Simulated scan of single mutants.
Amino acid sequence: MEYDLTELIKTALSMRKRSYTPYSHFNVGAALISKDGRIFTGCNIENAAFTPTNCAERTAFFKAVSEGVKDFEAIVIAGGAEDAKELDYCPPCGVCRQVMSEFCEDDFKIILAKSETEYVICSLADSLPDRFGPKNLLG
């Protein structure tokens, strides 16, 4: 599947503005593209009890799955302090990597973006080697 990486990065960067982060002030946006070309967005949403907090990546995945989509191509993640003039790379947490492992193949692309022109791409296999997933339970 061909996709416009610049547009995907712009979408993730814009989703940072929708973050609800009154405690950490660390805003993360995500843009997830399915194999059929649909884009699902997410932002991080904090909670005073912390445990119910949801990351941008999982928000995007849960939105997609709730719409019946379970085949994915790539995700762009952009994050940093809400008042940051420049962003650094913001890799997904372990829980988000585990959610990716549930729905994505080893070659799923994880794109960490500082800006529209500065980004790195890695695969899920590189990001979560020896992962535990459906194949472990379903054979």
Results as ranks from 00 to 15, higher is better:
Glu7Asp: 12
Asp88Val: 07
Phe103Asp: 02
Met100Phe: 15
Thr41Glu: 14
Asn54Leu: 15
Lys109Ala: 09
Ser115Cys: 09
Pro91Gln: 08
Val76Arg: 03
Ile110Tyr: 05
Asp83His: 14
Phe108Ser: 10
Leu124Phe: 13
Val95Pro: 00
Leu5His: 01
Met100Trp: 03
Cys90Asp: 05
Lys135Tyr: 11
Cys55Asp: 13
Gly42Phe: 05
Arg58Val: 09
Phe132Asp: 05
Pro129Thr: 11
Ala84Gly: 05
Leu112Asp: 02
Asp106Arg: 01
Lys85Leu: 12
Lys10Val: 06
Ile33Leu: 07
Leu138Trp: 13
Leu5Ala: 04
Asp83Ala: 13
Gly94Cys: 03
Val69Gly: 06
Asn47Ile: 01
Ala31His: 02
Glu67Gln: 14
Phe61Ala: 02
Ala125Trp: 03
Pro91Gly: 07
Tyr119Ile: 04
Gly80Glu: 01
Asp71Arg: 14
Val65Thr: 15
Ala12Gly: 06
Phe72Glu: 01
Ala31Gly: 08
Glu102Val: 10
Glu102His: 10
Tyr89Trp: 05
Leu87His: 04
Cys122Ile: 07
Asp107His: 13
Asn47Leu: 02
Glu67Pro: 05
Tyr119Met: 02
Val65Phe: 12
Lys35Asp: 13
Met100Ser: 04
Tyr3Lys: 08
Ala74Thr: 06
Val28Pro: 01
Phe40Asp: 00
Ser19Met: 05
Gly68Asn: 10
Ile45Gln: 10
His25Glu: 14
Glu86Arg: 10
Cys122Tyr: 10
Ser123Trp: 07
Ala78Met: 08
Gly37Pro: 03
His25Cys: 07
Ala78Lys: 01
Ser19Cys: 15
Thr53Gln: 11
Asn44Asp: 08
Ala74Ile: 03
Ser123Glu: 09
Glu118Ser: 11
Val65Met: 09
Val95His: 04
Tyr119His: 12
Ile9Met: 05
Ser24Leu: 07
Ala56Asn: 03
Val69Glu: 15
Arg58Gln: 14
Leu138Pro: 05
Ile75Tyr: 02
Phe108Cys: 12
Cys93Ala: 09
Leu128Cys: 06
Val28Glu: 02
Gly42Thr: 09
Ala12Asp: 11
Glu2Lys: 09
Glu46Met: 06
Lys17Thr: 10
Phe108Tyr: 10
Glu105Asp: 15
Phe40Val: 05
Ala84His: 12
Cys93Glu: 04
Lys10Met: 14
Thr117Ser: 15
Lys85Pro: 02
Ile33Gln: 06
Asp130Cys: 07
Phe26Pro: 00
Ser19Arg: 04
Leu137Asn: 09
Lys17Leu: 14
Asp130Ser: 12
Cys43Arg: 01
Glu57Val: 12
Pro92Ile: 11
Ser127Ile: 01
Gly42Glu: 04
